[in-house]
């Protein structure tokens, strides 16, 4: 089982298609949508975590491409600026995955990018502006 965090860009022609449904039903992928938006020009954007074996992921990707959906890997979107972080811990309970975590011996807060699903809930929460989002 592999997990891939991806950004899917949907052309306006696909907005009415149940593409995510097909990914799940026909390609056996587990899809966890982290963020979804659609702009005025009907260009859709979905940030999702796809889970499946290598074959399922490959076939799912081929299907998406055949529909004109662009797939990009999601990397390094959240930056935790250590010099600005005071390790206050106020973000910790609001991070759904434990990516922002505190060591209860040293009381230092750190960010684990592998666990981060870029839900952005920490960005407006940090009073010291020590977490920032970077879109690609």
């Amino acid at each position: 089982m592999n997990t891939k965090k991806v950004v899917l860009s949907f052309p306006p022609s696909t907005v009415e298609d149940p593409i995510i449904y097909h990914l799940i039903m026909d390609y056996g992928l587990m899809v966890n949508i982290l963020r979804a938006s659609i702009d005025a020009g009907k260009q859709g954007r979905v940030v999702a975590e796809l889970k499946g074996d290598d074959n399922q992921l490959k076939n799912g990707a081929n299907f998406l491409e055949s529909k004109g959906v662009e797939i990009e890997p999601l990397t390094e979107e959240i930056r935790h600026i250590e010099e600005k972080c005071t390790s206050c811990t106020s973000c910790v309970p609001l991070c759904p995955t434990g990516a922002l975590n505190v060591d209860r011996e040293t009381w230092v807060v750190s960010h684990d990018a592998d666990k981060c699903v870029v839900c952005l809930s920490c960005v407006d929460v940090c009073p010291y502006r020590a977490v920032t989002a970077h879109f690609q």
């Binding site: 005071t86 390790s87 206050c88 811990t89 106020s90 973000c91 910790v92 309970p93 609001l94 040293t106 009381w107 230092v108 807060v109 009073p127």
Partner: peptide, 14 residues
């Protein structure tokens, strides 16, 4: 179980 967070930095207090 309600998760807790603080605004006063214990690490800095130390």
């Amino acid at each position: 179980d309600v998760p807790t967070g603080c605004f006063s930095s214990y690490q800095k207090a130390r």
